[in-house]
Structures are given as C-alpha cells and as structure tokens.
C-alpha cells in the first residue's frame, strides 16, 4: 500500500505516505531531543519532591524542603527589617533634633525619603512637593498647621486633616455664599477686601469704599477664624490671607469661590499605612526641602 522511498537530497528513508505532494522522512527522534526529555523530566520530578506539588484530595504534598511562599516572604521581610534596624532603631528612639544633628541619619532620610514621598504623597503634593491648586506647597515655608517643624509635619501626617481619624485635624472654611450666610454681593465685597490685602495696588481711589465695606464684613464674619488682621492661625489650620501663598488661588475669582462654596481640604491620615519610622523619615525629608526658610 505504501512504498518507502529514499529522499535524494539526504539519502534518508521516507515513511511512504504522501499528502498532496508532502512526504515525511522516517528519521528517528534525534538523540539530543531524548537527552533533553530526560533532563527536563529529572528536574521536574526532583522539584516535585522538594516543593509543594501534587494535590491529594483534601491536602497536598508539602515537599521535602517544607517551603511555602508565604513563610518565605515573611522571612525575607523580617531579614530586611533586621538589616534596616541599624538605622530604624536610631530614628525610632531619637528626637527630631537629635536626628537632624546626626549626619549619617540625615543621609538615610535623604536616601529613603524620595521613594516614600513619591509613592505616597507625590500624587497630591507633586513629586517635588511643590504642591498645586488645592494641595499645599510643602517647600514654600508657608504652613497651615504649626511652624513647619518636623514634629508638626509628622503630627499632620499621623492624624491627617479632615479625616475620620479620632484625633484628626479639622480645617473647614464655611460656605458663606452657598449656605446663605452672606448675600452674593457681600461675598464679592469681602473677597475684594481680602484680595486687597495681598494686592496693595488694588486699593485705588475708586475701590476704597467697597474695600472698607468688605473690611467690616470681614470683621463680623471672618476674623473669628482668620484673625482681625487676617494673619491666620497655625494652631487651627486657618490660612494667612495677607501673603502670597494661596492654597486655592489668590485671584479675585478664586477667592470669591472660596468664600462662596467654602473649603475643607482632605489630607489622609498615614497612621495605619505608614510606620512611625516611615512617618518620621518623611517629616524630616519634607522639612529638609527648605520649607522652614520662606
């Protein structure tokens, strides 16, 4: 039925079958392939003995080495923590001043800070910490809360601002316009006053009267929080309205928006997500960005 032939090019036998002109040679499986089969199978079988491998209904073979990925990673993490302990324990137990005085610890801060900041804070404050609309610049030396000391920054990070943390900092600017506490004309008037504080050139002859009106509106409604001179209060996170630093923007329109709709920025708490050491490192890192020297 089938006739084997000899392939003229190689002198090898065909199997004698043909499909629309295609033939096959009857060569044996090359030895190299067989060796390859043996090698890979030996490896696999060995691996099955050493590692967790085959299911047995309600359990599985655990392997002679007793390895499991979870135990392995726990060990790796502990080992890492142990190695890191050379500086983490120093940071944990030292005060901020002590760390700042210690060059080698500060070198660690500068080494690890950027990654921690990039993975946790950069999305809001910018990867160079220079902030953007609605998110404060952490390098400009103007602080809502506290004096920009590493302690204050660390505390802000721990409890967050306007969060559900039991000790959270709260900073809420009421929505004077939207909630009907001020008529919209008054909102504009007080905003013009606030605008004039940081823009002296705005106080022209023709504006003076309305600015004066705004000043009295401010005294009635705003000074309780922002202070009579609108200098803010770093104890309550109330911004200074006289300087060049603005969280939500210092243009007249933006100020009107702040007064009309109110503001309450949300800074998450890092109490659970970051360890005390990580928070300390971050606070020192932020502090080192020059934010204390406006």
């Amino acid at each position: 039925m089938s006739k084997t032939e000899v392939d003229p090019a190689t002198g090898e036998q065909t199997t004698g079958h043909e499909w629309n002109g295609i033939k096959e040679l009857d060569n044996p499986v090359p030895r190299g392939v067989l060796i390859f089969v043996v090698v890979t199978h030996v490896f696999a079988i060995l691996w099955w003995f050493l590692m967790p491998a085959f299911p047995l209904g309600w359990t599985y073979t655990r392997g002679l080495l007793g390895i499991d990925q979870r135990a392995t990673v726990e060990q790796a993490i502990s080992a890492n923590q142990a190695e890191r302990a050379s500086w983490t324990s120093a940071i944990e137990t030292s005060s901020f001043d002590q760390i700042q005085a210690d060059e080698s610890l500060m070198a660690v801060v500068k080494d690890t800070g950027p990654q921690l900041f990039g993975d946790n804070c950069g999305a809001c404050h910018g990867f160079d910490a220079s902030g953007r609309s609605n998110y404060p610049d952490l390098t400009d030396g103007d602080w809502l809360w506290g004096d920009g000391s590493a302690e204050a920054v660390a505390e802000t990070m721990r409890v967050g601002i306007n969060t559900s943390h039991p000790e959270s900092r709260f900073a809420q600017m009421p929505a004077f316009g939207r909630d009907g506490m001020l008529a919209s004309a008054d909102v504009r008037t007080v905003a013009r006053y606030v605008y004039s504080l940081s823009h002296p050139e705005f106080s022209t002859e023709e504006n003076l009267e309305s600015i004066a009106q705004g000043e009295s509106l401010f005294a009635e409604n705003c000074s309780g929080c922002h202070g009579a001179a609108a200098l803010g209060d770093a104890e309550t996170g109330t911004p200074n309205l006289t300087d060049a630093y603005w969280l939500y923007g210092g243009e007249l329109d933006q100020i009107i928006e702040s007064v009309h709709g109110g503001r309450a920025g949300h800074m998450p708490t890092w109490d659970e997500r970051l360890t005390p050491v990580e928070r300390k490192v971050l606070a020192l890192y932020v502090h080192s960005l020059g934010g204390t020297t406006p």
Binding site: N120, A123, N134, H266, M267, P268, R273
Partner: peptide
C-alpha cells in the same frame, strides 16, 4: 482604599 481622598 483610604489612601487618597474622594476629591483626589
């Protein structure tokens, strides 16, 4: 979850 604010 909880890492960023709703606003963000």
């Amino acid at each position: 979850g909880g890492k960023y604010s709703d606003v963000w």
